[in-house]
Amino acid sequence: MSEIKQHAFLFDAARCIDCRACMVACSVENKIPMDKTRIWVSGIGVKGEYPNLESATMVYHCMHCEDPDCASACPVGAWVKRSDGPVLYDSKLCIGCRYCMNACPFGVPHYDWDKGLIDGAFIDKCSMCPQRIDIGLEPACVATCPTDALVFGERADLLKDAHARIAAHPYRYIDHVYGETENGGTSYLIISHVPFKELGLPELGPTPLKDISELIMGGTIPFALGWAAVLSGVAAGAYALDKKKEAKDKHVETQEELPAKTEATQ
């Protein structure tokens, strides 16, 4: 074991206000094209019947697993887990086979069917902003979060912090830190006031999926995930934008008549 400290995110669903500053910050920082995104803020929507309602949002991006399935699945070694936390993808090595997409239990890596995504890459996902953390800055999403729903630090400290928050407000939080052990542990830790399953997080054991699947059937993904639906990635992003365009066209069609007059006299 090296002495290198492991970076991680801690996300607190009880604090997130769905403002999407993190999404905008990520898109600007990483120069993400207008029809793509690396972060999704989604969740359970509004649950219950008026006036007994509940709501929760969750920031979805790469979990930065300790022992990442994407890396194990990649036949050309385009993925590495850096010892200080981030799971990184190298577009120059990628051959576009999409094994990583199938392997990831969280459905994170996404693919552009038409062309290379960014700088000729086929696959895209959250990188933990190495260009920032390497010079001592927080990732863009964390740095801007107005409620500190997203924080960044050393994994060991954040785990302690997460357990302390749960202990301080036992009625508020589910007594579990998601990512502490899931899939062998992740560098994205989550605490929540609603069950993790409702947020679309898969129930995973402490053993990375690949070890199980290698054992059982050589790589078939055993479940369809709620999260995967949220994260059908580029497709989802592009679909949402299409929908907006459609809505816009419709709005234009139904624009109310402009009031006549406003003839100028000059």
Partner: peptide
């Protein structure tokens, strides 16, 4: 201009910006 950060020295941002502030460029 390629990115906007909240100024930690300013009492109204304290290092953060909201989505509108982030989109300012």
């Amino acid at each position: 201009v390629v990115k906007l950060e909240g100024n930690p020295d300013h009492p109204h941002s304290k290092g953060n910006l909201c989505p509108r502030g982030q989109s300012g460029l």
